[in-house]
Nucleic acid binder design. Structure first.
Length: 801
RNA sequence: GCCGGUGUGGCGGAACAGGCAGACGCAAGGGACUUAAAAUCCCUCGCUGGCAACAGCGUACCGGUUCAAGUCCGGUCACCGGCACCA
């Protein structure tokens, strides 16, 4: 029989959809399982095989859990605001709304062609005003709670996309969207105070089940460090220069200070500074460098001494020079450091280059050769001399500083506040009004959604201004407070806004009075299992945990953490082993695979191709292996017999396979689960027939992987109802065990023989039987037996001398 | 530079928690069926030697622990990912 995948798959997709088979129903009497996959950005390029792999994992788990009786919520939606769509719209002269609608339609069709068991009744689209109304609502709540502020500061700016970027969006000094170099620019920026949540985000990690490397990456990204703030007097001026240091214990060794080129103190005291022109020259040079050059290429220290200003070391009143150098960043700590060349590598290098004194304050290294960052006995350190414990020294210094009000304990984070405005059209308008009288006024809640105005020209404005700034009917408005003339904020939110809470909306997508009903949130949250890409660990995954935690703090959601468990799939590489990319021409189109082999083949291949969590190259020929699997399954119908039970020969194999598949699926070991079923299939064909009972079990355990062909066979066999609604197979632990097992006999660890013995043989019996073998007896004859080992069910090892 | 991960046949990958290395699949070779091809089915398939039974070697490299190491320990190398002058 030839299996017609195209016709059959379509048939079942229609039946599932019409029957609402995968619709999740709010039912508090049933154990819920909320499986979440990262909703796609509907780009014009269509789906990528990577999407299929990312979704196929939880798809299999969801189908299995449904069969096991869970009330499964497995939703899908579209994260549709963002630059690529807007850029495409500009290029093709279409409205982003139309581009988005087209792309969503295309994606939906593709996703349905794969037969994913998503609940299509809950689809969300972040660009829908009924959705972004609530994105804006949460933003206003944050505003109300002091988590939104405006600042003019140096920010990451992408000259090519013409937008301000957050730290997360410019990792490695590259724009996340176009991958061009990011520059530092001084701009007015709206920030979300995510740093206020740094500790909560760290603590929350302790109670969730995330892959260890995901946790670690988040911990590193948040980058918490503890230390102290220390204020240095500046000689002759009533001004203190504050630094942050993790090593206050080395304060006696501070022989100079360094401030960032952008540090405000330079302009403030420009009159006192004797070499201002030289400093300006240096600052200009620094400004020219990209972040990349400044941090990566230019490890060679440069800098200029500030003539006319001297700092005073608070512990010994020594006058020390102040330098500007771009190895100190304005964006971290206070933009100024105390330099201890003897015990910090960078300061050492700088001191050597500029001929500055190096004072050893901790014994243990050789400061003639290099800086010594380790521990040891304190020397040359006044009241610290003789101490050997770093923490004791730190405590003592801080005590000293606090007494004189010259410093205190402090904490710093690498994570920065979230630069939240984008100077573009295709995003949620920021619901803020600027009033000359009242200042910054939030848009009243009852005016939400603040809709994006219809416009024709989406080109970003000059000087990095949003296209919305040109729409007078949008800009000019009434101040909600004083009713006077006012202007709207014209920037929009970043792409990450809508995705920061979408998992909450799935729970109650049509709710018009709140973002989601409290009781429903209590039932469905937290997400039981969230799977997605590693690239989101320090972006979306941080942002959404922040938003959710904020909603928890204001009593809007029931639990502290949104995701109980988080895993990540590995990439699918091109057939050449490189990352798939358009420019390399190694991208595999899922549509083509489906056209040629069918969705079941595609689904099973992306799971069978290797370890789910690791990257693996696509192989056209290996896909055929899965094609054979589907055909072989279909052709089982021809060797079907009437018996309702397991056959004697295969009973144990079935129990073992069911057990393995049941456990492997939950461990994301889809490749070995499928391999086990292939092995069973080989046994069935070797035997030459399959009973109805066996067929039933086989179809059930295969269904999550290849749902169409199994559903078809289920119907052909005349089994009740839909396979999708059938109950998962149970297995009998006792029947997974063999009564007779093969063990190997080793002499000194080398295999010499294999025998079958009864599974419950004692150690003595097994060893006796081994020794009675001709070959073994021969081998040990005349030798002393040093040791005899029996590993139950595995081997006998006889050690002789 | 720092942190994390990985390294197994021609290829993708298996191997519970130290106990038969290479499951399953692909590719390749041989055969059956066919006028022929495709599809399907059967056999072989880590390397070396041997007609064979079998023997020796083999999980990046060097060393160690153990009756026994892909797995544990110490060191080296390579590749991948993250961070990157974070004071």
């Amino acid at each position: 029989m030839i299996y017609n995948a195209k016709k059959t798959e379509r048939k079942w997709q229609d039946i599932w959809e019409e029957g609402g088979v995968f619709h999740a129903k709010y039912n508090i009497d049933k154990q819920k399982f909320y499986a979440l996959v990262e909703f796609p950005y509907p780009s014009g390029a269509g789906m990528h095989v990577g999407h299929i792999k990312a979704y196929a994992g939880l798809e299999v788990i969801s189908r299995k859990r449904r069969m096991q009786g869970y009330n499964v919520l497995f939703p899908i939606g579209f994260d549709a605001f963002g630059l690529p769509t807007e850029n495409y719209a500009i290029k093709t002269n279409l409205h982003p709304r139309i581009v988005t609608d087209n792309n969503i339609e295309k994606f939906s069709e593709q996703l349905k062609r794969i037969g994913f068991s998503f609940d299509w009744s809950r689809v969300i689209d972040t660009t829908d005003e009924n959705y972004y109304k609530w994105t804006q609502w949460i933003f206003l709540k944050m505003f109300e709670n002091g988590l939104v502020f405006k600042d003019k500061a140096l920010v990451n700016y992408c000259p090519s996309c013409k937008v301000v970027l957050s730290n997360e969006d410019s990792q490695g000094g590259k724009c996340d969207i176009c991958h061009n170099d990011v520059v530092q620019k001084s701009k007015d920026v709206w920030y979300l105070r995510i740093t206020e949540y740094a500790d909560k985000l760290l603590e929350g990690l302790e109670e969730v089940d995330f892959l260890p490397n995901i946790k670690l990456q988040q911990v590193n990204w948040i980058g918490k460090s503890t230390g102290a703030f220390v204020r240095f007097d500046i000689k002759g001026i009533d001004e203190k220069l504050q630094v942050y240091t993790t090593r206050p214990d080395t304060l006696f060794g501070a022989t100079f200070m360094v401030i960032a080129p952008e540090h405000p103190i330079i302009n403030k005291y420009s009159e006192k500074i004797e070499n201002m022109a030289q400093l300006q020259e240096y600052r200009k040079e620094c400004a020219k460098k990209t972040e990349f050059e400044r941090t990566q290429l230019n490890k060679d220290k440069t800098g200029v001494k500030i003539e006319g200003l001297k700092a005073i070391n608070p512990v010994n009143n020594e006058e020390i020079p102040i330098y500007i150098s771009d190895y100190v960043m304005m964006g971290y700590g206070t933009g100024a450091i105390m330099a201890v060349p003897a015990h910090d590598e960078r300061d050492y290098e700088f001191a050597k280059k500029f001929g500055i004194e190096i004072i050893e304050v901790i014994k243990g290294g050789d400061i003639e050769k290099e800086a010594y960052p380790g521990d040891g006995e304190m020397i040359n350190s006044g009241f610290l001399n003789g101490l050997t414990n770093k923490n004791d020294s730190i405590d003592k210094v801080i005590e000293f500083l606090e007494e004189k009000n010259l410093g205190e304990k402090g904490v710093q984070y690498k994570m920065k506040d979230w630069a939240f405005n984008r100077q573009r059209y295709w995003g949620e308008p920021i619901p803020i009004i600027h009033c000359e009288k009242c200042g910054i006024v939030p848009v009243p809640y009852n005016e939400l959604p603040l809709r994006l105005p219809e416009i024709k020209d989406f080109e970003p404005g000059k000087d990095g201004e949003s296209p919305l700034a040109r729409i007078e009917s949008f800009v000019n408005c009434e101040c909600p407070k004083c009713l006077g003339k006012a202007k709207r904020e014209t920037d929009t939110m970043p792409q990450w806004a809508g995705s920061s809470w979408y998992f909450l909306r799935y729970i109650d997508p049509d709710n018009n009075s709140e973002f989601a009903n409290e009781e429903k949130l209590k039932y469905w949250m937290p997400v039981d299992w969230y799977n997605g890409g590693m690239e989101h660990v320090t972006r979306h995954l941080i942002y959404s945990r922040f938003w959710y935690r904020f909603l928890y703090d204001i009593g809007q959601v029931p639990y502290k953490e949104p995701y109980a468990k988080r895993t990540a799939q590995g990439l699918i590489l091109g057939p050449d082993g490189d990352k798939m990319s358009k420019s390399k021409g190694n991208v595999v189109d899922p549509n083509e695979v489906i056209d040629e082999y069918g969705a079941d083949v595609l689904r099973s291949y992306v799971l069978f191709m290797g370890d789910y969590e690791k990257a693996a190259p696509w192989s056209e020929s290996s896909v055929k292996g899965c094609k054979r699997l589907v055909d072989r399954v279909y052709n089982l119908y021809e060797i079907l017999t009437d018996s309702k039970n397991y056959s004697k020969e295969l009973e144990s194999s079935f129990h073992k396979t069911i057990k393995k598949v049941t456990l492997d699926i939950e461990a994301l070991k889809f490749n070995t689960a499928i391999a086990a079923i292939m092995t069973l299939l080989n046994e069935i064909y070797d035997k030459g027939s399959i009973t109805k009972g066996e067929m039933k079990a086989l179809l059930i355990i295969l269904n999550p992987f290849i749902p169409h062909v199994t559903e078809e066979l289920w119907e052909m066999c005349g089994f009740d109802g839909l396979l999708a609604n059938a109950a998962w197979c149970s297995y009998d632990e006792e029947k997974c065990k063999d009564s007779e097992i093969e063990i190997v006999i080793q002499i000194c660890g080398k295999i010499r023989e294999r025998i079958m013995i009864s599974a419950n043989s004692s150690s003595e019996e097994a060893i006796e039987k081994a020794k009675s073998l001709e070959k073994i007896a021969e081998a040990i004859k005349g030798k002393t037996i040093v040791k005899e080992i029996y590993v139950s069910g595995k081997l006998v090892n006889i050690v002789v001398r």
